[in-house]
Amino acid sequence: MQKNGPFALAFHTLIVLFVLAPLIVVCLVAFTPQNTLSLPWDGLSLRWFAAVFHHPDFVASFWNSARLALFSATISTMLAVPSALAITRYSFRGRDALNALFLSPLIIPHLVIGVAFLRLFSFIGATGSFGWLVAAHVMVIMPYALRLILAALNGMDLSAEMAARTLGAGEWTVFRRITFPMLLPGISGGWLLAFINSFDELTMSIFVTAPSTVTLPVRMYMYASESIDPMMAAVSTLMIALTGVTMIILDRLFGLDQLLVGKG
Results as ranks from 00 to 15, higher is better:
V174N: 10
L70S: 14
A210F: 12
D200G: 07
N64K: 05
F180K: 10
E161A: 01
M220P: 06
P143C: 10
G244F: 01
G264F: 01
L37F: 09
I113D: 04
M162F: 10
M156Q: 15
M239V: 03
V29I: 11
A86Q: 08
P33Y: 06
A126D: 03
L79Q: 13
A169V: 12
A136S: 09
D96G: 09
L146H: 00
L70M: 13
P56L: 05
T243E: 01
L242A: 14
V261K: 08
A136H: 00
L158I: 13
L256C: 12
V112T: 15
M220G: 08
A241P: 04
G5S: 13
A152S: 11
Q2I: 07
P185L: 03
P22A: 10
S45R: 06
K3W: 05
L120P: 05
M182I: 02
G168L: 10
A160N: 06
T237F: 00
H137Q: 14
V140E: 01
A163N: 13
A210Y: 14
A136N: 01
L148T: 04
L9Q: 14
A30W: 02
D157Y: 13
D57W: 09
L70P: 00
A224I: 13
Y221V: 09
L146T: 06
R219L: 08
I149Q: 02
L146I: 10
I141S: 02
P82N: 09
F130L: 07
R147P: 01
E171T: 12
L148F: 00
P6V: 03
S159Y: 07
I187S: 00
G114T: 09
R89N: 10
P56D: 08
G262V: 00
T74G: 11
T179L: 06
V52H: 07
T173L: 14
R165S: 14
A84I: 07
V140R: 00
L98K: 00
L153N: 03
L23C: 13
Q34R: 08
Q34H: 13
N4L: 08
A97F: 15
G43T: 07
Y223T: 08
A136R: 02
D251T: 01
L37Q: 06
L167E: 15
F195L: 05
F199M: 02
F207Q: 14
H54A: 10
M1F: 09
F195P: 00
F123S: 13
A135Y: 02
N154S: 15
L153V: 12
L39Q: 15
R177P: 07
D229R: 00
S129R: 03
D42R: 13
I206T: 07
F92V: 02
T179D: 01
H110N: 14
F254S: 04
V29G: 03
F31H: 08
L9P: 06
M220I: 14
M162D: 15
L39S: 12
I187A: 00
L39H: 10
N197V: 05
V208C: 06
P105W: 01
A194T: 02
K263S: 12
L111Q: 15
L202V: 11
E201R: 10
L148C: 04
W48T: 06
L98D: 03
L28W: 09
A51Y: 03
A60L: 08
S76V: 05
